[in-house]
C-alpha cells in the first residue's frame, strides 16, 4: 500500500516535468532528472519499509567527531 502510494506520488511528479524535458531533448537535463527521481523513489520506499539504510550522518560523525572533541578540549 505504502509502495503504491509513493509510486503514485512519483508518477504525478514525473507527469509535471518529464514531458517537457522529453520534448526539449536535453539529454543531460533529462538524465540528471531521472537519476535524482530514481534515488528519491528508492530512498522513500526503503525508508517507508523501514529498511536499514546507511546514514550519511554516521559518516559525518565518524569524520568530524575527533575534530569536534579536539576543539572542545582546547577551550
Amino acid at each position: 500500500m505504502l509502495v503504491v502510494g509513493i509510486l503514485l506520488i512519483v508518477a504525478v511528479i514525473a507527469w509535471i516535468d518529464l514531458p517537457r524535458l522529453w520534448r526539449k531533448k536535453q539529454k543531460k537535463d533529462l538524465s540528471v532528472y531521472l537519476i535524482l527521481l530514481l534515488i528519491g523513489t528508492g530512498l522513500s520506499i526503503a525508508e517507508g519499509l523501514n529498511w536499514d539504510i546507511p546514514n550519511p550522518m554516521d559518516w559525518l560523525i565518524y569524520v568530524y567527531r575527533p575534530v569536534g572533541e579536539w576543539i572542545f578540549h582546547q577551550l
Binding site: I13, D17, R20, K24, Q26, K28, L37, I39, T41
Partner: peptide, 14 residues
Amino acid sequence: LNDYRPLTFPLGII
C-alpha cells in the same frame, strides 16, 4: 544544466 526547476520535485522527495 539549462534549468534548475525540473530538479526541484525529485530533490524534494530526496
